[in-house]
């Protein structure tokens, strides 16, 4: 038998197995889309995977430019994706996320939290000093309407509930805060400089506005407005900034052979902190919409809410809210 005849015979034999390939492709598709939970299907997929690999290897050699080979490539890729699909346990995954993964991710960026906090506090002090020393610099940080309101001896937050209902205010505030927080994180992509800029600017603005209200005897009122939601809101700003800084550091000082790999690892690790930030900001939004602008709440109530929510944040970031204690083993989802 010549080589050409032998190869033709091999091709014909290979094509006779097409019914098996179709079955394998269909089974992989069923398992991928969750249209079957039959154990025997899952077990047979392993055999299918081997069968497709074997026949694809032959097809690549015997009929490299045929559409049969393309079909096998597709079926093999489908079987591969199905076989390597992670098991889906949404409830367990969520519990594991809050109990173990968020605390571990937060722990991994401890040093970044300290540095970003330092940056924020420094910017706060600098902003306050600038406006205290050169009052006209407030024009750099605040809008003309805000300046005019404070100069009239009023705080811009007074009568807020007469203009916008609490629910609308809450949703507007939490949406805005979440976007700022996500932006502070994503800006870490610019080698951390974006995060540095956003955190620094927010610190400068807060310090400047506090100094400006102090000049008009309204700083107590501003503190009264901020304390209930601000403890967590500002902490979350620092947290998301720290997560962004960790992403930036991964690009500046990669711990893997490739920068892109280091970036990916840092982004996936720190994204868990971001989930916690979003959840906490939802709470902040409601406090800022319902409690902060409502004058009927006395200062002590606001302090209790602010400090209490901050302690809840710490407990959540340590995993205590979800049953994690010191020495608890991590649970894989």
């Amino acid at each position: 038998m010549t080589d050409a005849l032998r190869e033709q015979a091999l091709r014909a034999t290979l094509l006779q197995r097409s019914a098996l390939w179709k079955e394998a492709a269909e089974r992989a598709r069923r398992l991928m889309t969750g249209r079957t939970d039959d154990v025997s299907d899952a077990v047979r997929l392993v055999d299918d995977y081997r069968l497709l690999a074997h026949d694809l290897a032959r097809a690549r050699r015997l009929m490299p430019d045929s559409r049969v080979r393309s079909f096998l490539e597709s079926a093999y890729a489908q079987a591969h994706a199905t076989l390597y699909k992670q098991a889906s346990h949404p409830g367990y995954a969520l519990w594991s996320l809050f109990r173990d993964q968020i605390p571990e991710a937060t722990r991994s960026i401890r040093s970044h939290i300290v540095w970003v906090l330092l940056l924020f506090v420094t910017a706060l002090g600098v902003g306050g000093w600038m406006v205290h020393t050169y009052p006209e610099l407030i024009n750099l940080f605040a809008s003309p309407s805000l300046i005019a309101t404070v100069e009239r001896g009023e705080l811009w937050t007074e009568g807020l509930l007469n203009v916008v209902p609490s629910s609308v205010l809450s949703l507007q505030i939490l949406t805005n805060n979440i976007v700022v927080s996500l932006f502070a994180y994503c800006a870490g992509f610019l080698f951390g400089l974006g995060t540095f800029y956003i955190v620094g600017l927010n610190g400068l603005m807060l310090g400047a506005v506090f100094a400006f209200t102090a000049q008009h005897g309204l700083d107590d009122d501003l503190f009264r407005f901020i304390v209930a939601h601000g403890c967590v809101e500002l902490s979350v700003m620092v947290l998301s900034g720290a997560a962004g800084a960790a992403v930036g550091e991964a690009l500046i000082r990669p711990t893997t052979p490739r920068r892109s790999q280091a970036f990916q690892q840092a982004a996936l690790r720190t994204s868990k902190v971001l989930i916690a930030c979003v959840v906490l900001l939802v709470g902040c939004g409601f406090i800022e919409g319902y409690i902060s602008p409502d004058p009927s709440y006395p200062l002590w109530t606001r302090v209790v809410v602010g400090v209490g929510y901050w302690l809840f944040m710490v407990a959540m970031l340590r995993g205590w809210v979800f049953g994690r204690s010191r020495g608890t083993e991590a649970v894989e989802a």
């Binding site: 005849l5 033709q8 015979a9 091709r11 014909a12 034999t13 094509l15 006779q16 097409s18 390939w21 179709k22 492709a25 559409r67 049969v68 393309s70 079909f71 597709s74």
Partner: peptide, 14 residues
């Protein structure tokens, strides 16, 4: 390429 297997009769190859 999913329908391609319907198109080829193995008996004619060769």
């Amino acid at each position: 390429h999913e329908g391609v297997l319907e198109h080829v009769n193995p008996a004619v190859i060769g």
